[in-house]
Amino acid sequence: MIVEGILKGAVMMSTPLLIGALAEVFVERTGVMNIAIEGIFLIGAWAGFVGAYLTKSIGVGLVCSVVAGLVTGAIYGYFTVYLKQHQIVTGTAFNILSVGLTLYLYRVFFGVPLLPLTVEPLSSINIPLLSKIPVLGEALFNQNILTYLAFLFVGVGYWVLYHTRLGLVIRSTGANPEAVDAAGINVEKVRYWAVLFSSAMNGLAGAFYSLGFLGLFTENIIGGRGWIAFAICFLGNWNPLGVLAGALVFGLADAVAVSIQTSAFKAIPNEFIIALPYILTIVATIARKHFNVPAYLGTPYVKERR
């Protein structure tokens, strides 16, 4: 029972990390780091909640989170891709702004409610028969729609990245932008679209925290999860399959933490368990020797001036 519960929790908690990290793989393969990821997670969580609360429809909420991510990404991409401003610096500005903005706009919409506002979270979709498989059934076949989408996205993402022309363009834009440019493809356009795509997905990933199981929005609802998704992209070596493995490990850490926190087991201080995913990231970053970093990651593309 406990094992089944933890496995189910692990798959559930890995969902937003998986979506965010996969999105980051695509944008970083074109040479742009989406450092605004933490902020976009938060904005997505906020917009998803607001949309769902006002319309009483989770579907509308999810659309809102994608649109909010898209809008943020449009501005972030404009600054980093077209104005060629520093990605880390710009991203940090966006992350600071997003904390103030979501809290402020929550107040604009809802004033100061006495009790935290809630919505009905996404319900699980039980796949008949398959969900009855012992141990793994509940974990893999009784989850909400976003989890299924995330796993579908791994396969589709892998196929697009390695088996299509689009994937070749994406990979080449990060590895050798000059060659892409020489082939008559607009490097900035590829990068901008990648930022838009990743930001929309990040918005959706953020909505998982507000709509996926909690059904509410708070200031620290994301609490560094965006950074963990960002780290998983690195640790997964910019490969959708590597990212899948990474997300599952972190999801498992999250699920184990939750079950230890709620159990009577008190030998390990709570704080250590909370810090576990972050320590794991540090250890994994240090332990991994060979990274396949896209050659032009973080470098704006400037055409040679005549």
């Binding site: 600054f79 710009t90 940090t92 500005a93 966006f94 600071i96 702004l97 997003s98 904390v99 103030g100 903005l101 809290l103 402020y104 107040r107």
Partner: peptide, 14 residues
């Protein structure tokens, strides 16, 4: 609300 301070800081940075 006090979140306006964060907004001012963020928008000034951008």
């Amino acid at each position: 609300p006090s979140s306006i301070i964060g907004i001012m800081e963020g928008l000034v940075m951008i």
